[in-house]
Design a protein around this nucleic acid. Structure first.
Lengths: 225, 225
DNA sequence: TGACTTTTTATACGTACGTACAGATAGTTT
DNA sequence: AAACTATCTGTACGTACGTATAAAAAGTCA
């Protein structure tokens, strides 16, 4: 992939060639993010992404490289931000002292629910993309490397409250927590269908219930251990 | 789709034309089940299914119809069995009396974990297929119709223990329970990775922890309501 | 045996895909 | 202005896809 302008010393307000290229690149990545989130990797063609970004076919390859490279770029682009939000919440907790399990769960879940409920459609698309693809095997190696550090930090924190829990139990309850969290975004329509009435489509509106569910679940699952 | 032999009055041991056709049809469906489970709908080609079934390309179309029809056939083929297993477990509970939330959760989760752990690779493939595709939108209408009746029956049963819980809350906790259950199958490798050691790959080995997690979660989430 | 149906083979059609690349364009630097 | 580089356009290549179908093969039944 001919990565444009690895130069770091450009002014972001320059309307020259470099800034234009960077703007195009972001349009491509944004379009890819929306497409991948809506339909999944295999079901999206590069031509669809080009049309969504309103650029020609070659531009997608120029800025995004191969389809797999483009996908991983899209996926990792916002991962660091999410990681930072979660770790900041966790550090706040530690600084505050008197940590409860519920607070740890809150610190893990809320940043994701927040971005999934934001006005910015790109962040919402990213949240949906994560919910859609994170369970798949195809890119799981690359994806796991993005999210495992966060998961490990929270596992370590939970372990301080349940010192006797073994590693598999901790990994399991965190995985169940992640799955529950993602399903709030991925299975909204099913919740609505099973409710037989109107249900909110803002993930943030399920925050308290989700935190309750995961907190109670972890407590019950680790309590005996 | 030229559905072969809608005739019901054939002996299953006949080795004539009808029985041969039926055997071929099952080889095709089994192969499709394995392929779809391993790679997902879009990533599998009909030619791959034909190769897996060791039949020629046209045979897949003859017995399976279009790709979407084939997919839905594979999906619905075993749904009734799973539904029956769950409902039987639920009826046993009701007959026995003194029902606890944990028993309801058990009746819902265990049949799935059981088939996902069976020796029969086709049942295992089906369990993986469900875990992979049930959250997707593409076929969610058809898929929901298959599984919603079971879900509603269990929601009604949970409601007897939490009469004041509203419909959305009940639908949400059941959706979270389903997501947790599926992630045991879909995210086995992630659990292993986060455990930093060998973890079982038999879903049944996570049964107790999963039941604890979901029971504790539902109790916590509905307890306030 | 010979008409009839079900099943299987082999092949082809049209389309869409991911990727590559030559050349045009536009902005930068000397 | 001229050389240079980054960006973009247009197009083409080879492949794989889902589907359809004519004809052959296999089995059934009068």
């Amino acid at each position: 992939m001919p990565q444009p302008q690895e130069n770091a010393d450009i002014s972001p307000t320059t309307d020259g060639r470099l800034a234009r290229g960077e703007a195009t690149r972001e349009r491509v990545l944004d379009a890819a993010e929306r497409c991948f989130a809506a339909k999944g990797f295999e079901a999206v063609s590069i031509r669809q992404i080009a049309a969504e970004a309103e650029v020609t076919l070659g531009v997608v390859g120029f800025h995004g490289g191969s389809k797999e490279e483009l996908f991983m770029t899209v996926f990792s682009r916002r991962a660091a931000t999410l990681h930072d939000l979660r770790m900041a919440a966790l550090r706040n907790l530690i600084a505050r002292g008197d940590m409860q399990l519920r607070d740890i769960v809150d610190a893990y879940l809320t940043p994701y629910l927040d971005i999934a409920s934001r006005g910015d459609p790109q962040w919402r698309a990213y949240a949906q993309l994560v919910a859609r693809e994170v369970a798949r095997d195809r890119f799981s190696d690359g994806i796991r490397e993005l999210y495992d550090p966060t998961a490990r930090a929270f596992i370590a924190q939970i372990k301080t409250l349940h010192p006797s829990a073994d590693a598999t139990a901790l990994a399991t309850v965190l995985t169940l927590t992640v799955a529950s969290m993602l399903s709030i975004v991925a299975s909204q329509s099913r919740i609505a269908g099973l409710s037989d009435g109107p249900a909110s489509d803002r993930p943030m509106d399920y925050r308290e219930m989700l935190i309750d569910f995961c907190t109670g679940g972890i407590q019950q699952a680790l309590g005996k251990g």
